[in-house]
Design a binder for these strands. Sequence first.
DNA 1: TGTACATCAGTGAACGCGCGTTCACTGATGTAC
DNA 2: TGTACATCAGTGAACGCGCGTTCACTGATGTAC
Lengths: 205, 205
Amino acid sequence: MTTADKRARLRDDLIDAAEAAVSVNGLSGIKARALAEAAGCAVGAIYNVFPDLDALIYEVNARTLRRLDAVLAGATDAGDDPETAMRKLALAYHRFSRAERRRWTAVFAHQIPDGAMPPEWYLGVVAQLFRHIEGPLATLLPGSTPAMRNGLARTLFSASHGIVSLGLEEKLGPAPDEVIANALVVMTRSWVLGLPGAVAPPTRP
Amino acid sequence: MTTADKRARLRDDLIDAAEAAVSVNGLSGIKARALAEAAGCAVGAIYNVFPDLDALIYEVNARTLRRLDAVLAGATDAGDDPETAMRKLALAYHRFSRAERRRWTAVFAHQIPDGAMPPEWYLGVVAQLFRHIEGPLATLLPGSTPAMRNGLARTLFSASHGIVSLGLEEKLGPAPDEVIANALVVMTRSWVLGLPGAVAPPTRP
DNA sequence: TGTACATCAGTGAACGCGCGTTCACTGATGTAC
DNA sequence: TGTACATCAGTGAACGCGCGTTCACTGATGTAC
């Protein structure tokens, strides 16, 4: 095994260890000493393959995002009408965030310093997610532009996220899974029925 | 000034100091030594009036919630139709969370240990907020029960919160204020147009 | 193939910092007589 | 009103812990001849 291979191997082992730690204790479960022990290396070795623990956090969260991406990709069927597709997407999102509770919370819990931005490659992974919602929107709103669909997709995602995340954390009081799922169904139906008029741009040229 | 008065005064001074700290540096701005200095007491004195810093955090967040409550109470006019009322509420919520960005984020950033619950009085303050949405919903859905309206109010609040908070934190990419406001308008309109059918309970007795 | 040397992954003790909470002590306030 | 005493607010140094990151050192790996 070459040096480069070992390096790559250590990187992966550390990401695995970090992911496992997050699954159990959330973002704050990522601790240099524990990771080193789990990956079978010395604390110092972490800093040979990552600049700092923050970089490791991005790797873990990117994995989670990619897994969600795969789940959403498989959530709809070819013949689904837009409402069905959007409902399936929302419910798949709910199931995913429930199944990967801690890991999913970590994606949003990661705080970055005030003016800073996540790395470019990471933002790319995030952007991928909206593809899935833009598809049904294109069917639903044939006259819309890609930019409009992207904006709507973000809005829909944000709204679903609010329902799912406040529900999961029970910030507003107890929220059984069926209640959350029902809220999502109500929401997608409302959107589909209410959207067409709303989607028209404020002024037409 | 009696001992009890001084005690109450110190409590208030500490909450003031904590609130100011949160406004500047978020929840993690609450630090025993800094608070003591700001309130003009010794570190140890904090623990004479609060069991720990967590109790202080609840006080600060409750203040923020009460301020939002007051804002929402003044956001609508007597003659507003349901859609107008709900739109005004959503936009008022957006303005509020923008104006009190750090304080508002703190309300949701406060993590409590795994099985723990916030104190009863605090949950009461949270519950108050839904009143404002339940009003318009009652007009919109005359046949609905209070429980249904409460559920819907929570859903609407969560959805708005998702749009506002992901927008403010720019977690999904840049999100100018007008874009967020527009998303809220689209959302309330969709809900009002789409709701009536969706609101019927799944099965009727 | 063998030898000398350079490179750099790997090590883990130590540094440095932050911070919540405690606790032995003091002195002001309030009470009892 | 005055005095003795008890209470408890107030103090801040010290405790205890956690934790990211560094750095002088070692030894394995790869290279040049």
